[in-house]
Design a protein around this nucleic acid. Structure first.
Lengths: 134, 134
DNA sequence: GTTGACCCTGTACCCGGGTACCGGGTCTAG
DNA sequence: CTAGACCCGGTACCCGGGTACAGGGTCAAC
C-alpha cells in the first residue's frame, strides 16, 4: 500500500503519516527502489487507533506506550503485567469520571421540564472532594 | 477569594484563570475597588472540572458547552434535552471505547507469561471495522 | 516520450492551550 | 512609612500536534 491510500483509509493527511513515522508511532515502512513507502495493512488500523486514543484524551507519548503494550509489552511477564495493570487502572478512572458526567446529564434530562434554575445537573459535583483521599 | 488562592486550590497557574475568564469558561468575577478579582467558591470546582474534562479528551469549546448544560442548558426543555442526550451518547461512545481498551489490556495480563510474540493484546482490534456501519 | 497523478525531503507555518515577563499598583505586618 | 507578597493589564513566547509549500523525482497510460 502506498502513502496516499493509507492516508485515505485512515482519514488523515499524508503529512500526518510521516509525522507519526518520525515520532515512532508507525513502524518505518519498507521502500521501493524509487523511495516510495510501502505500508502493510496494519498501518491503517494503527493510525485509526492513534486517532481514537487521542480523542479519548491520550497524548501521542501515551499512545506510543499503548502501542508497545499492544505488541506484548516488556519482555518480562512481570514488567508487562505491571504496565498493563497501571494502564487499566488509568482507564478505569476515566471510565468512572465519564460515567459520573453521564449520570449527571441524565439527571438534567430528567428534570429539564422545570424552569432552568431548578433543573438538576450536578456536573460540577462530579469533581469529588478528592483531596481528602490522598 | 483572590486569584492566587483559587489558582492554588485548583492546581493551576494564575494566568490560566485569566485565560479561562477571557474564553468565557469562568464567569467574570467581581472586583474590589483596587481592581483585584474576587472569586466565589464555585470557581475552584469549575476549574477542576475543566481540567478533568480536558484529560478526558474534551476541548475547551466542548467544555464550555458542558458548563452551560451544568447550568440548565437552553431555556426550552426540548433544547436542553436534545443537547444533553447528544452529549450522553458521546459519553457512552467514549466509555465503550475505553472499555474495549481495558478488556484488551486485561487479556494481555492474562497471557503475559507467554513469550512476547504469543501474548494476546487485541488493542488494535478495538477499532472495529466501523466503516460498514455508516 | 510526454502528461497527470502521485511520491520524496526539507523547511516553514498554523492552531489550541496555555505560560512568562514587564512595568506598575495594592495591601498588611512590623 | 516601608518591605515583601500579592495583583493588574498587555504583549510576547512556548509546546504539542499537525499542515502547507517548494523544488524535484516516479509511474502508468496513452
Amino acid at each position: 500500500m502506498r502513502t496516499g491510500q493509507v492516508a485515505d483509509l485512515a482519514g488523515v493527511n499524508i503529512q500526518t503519516l510521516r509525522y507519526y513515522e518520525r515520532r515512532g508511532l508507525l513502524p518505518t515502512p519498507s521502500r521501493r527502489a524509487s523511495g516510495y513507502r510501502v505500508y502493510g495493512p496494519d498501518a491503517v488500523r494503527t493510525v485509526r487507533f492513534v486517532k481514537r486514543a487521542q480523542q479519548l484524551g491520550f497524548s501521542l507519548a501515551e499512545v506510543e506506550s499503548l502501542l508497545e503494550l499492544a505488541q506484548g509489552g516488556p519482555s518480562s511477564c512481570e514488567g508487562a503485567r505491571r504496565l498493563a495493570v497501571d494502564k487499566i487502572s488509568d482507564l478505569d478512572q476515566r471510565i468512572t469520571h465519564l460515567h459520573a458526567m453521564r449520570d449527571s446529564l441524565q439527571h438534567l434530562v430528567a428534570t429539564c421540564e422545570r424552569p432552568r434554575r431548578q433543573r438538576e445537573c450536578p456536573l460540577l459535583d462530579t469533581i469529588q472532594d478528592a483531596d481528602r483521599g490522598v
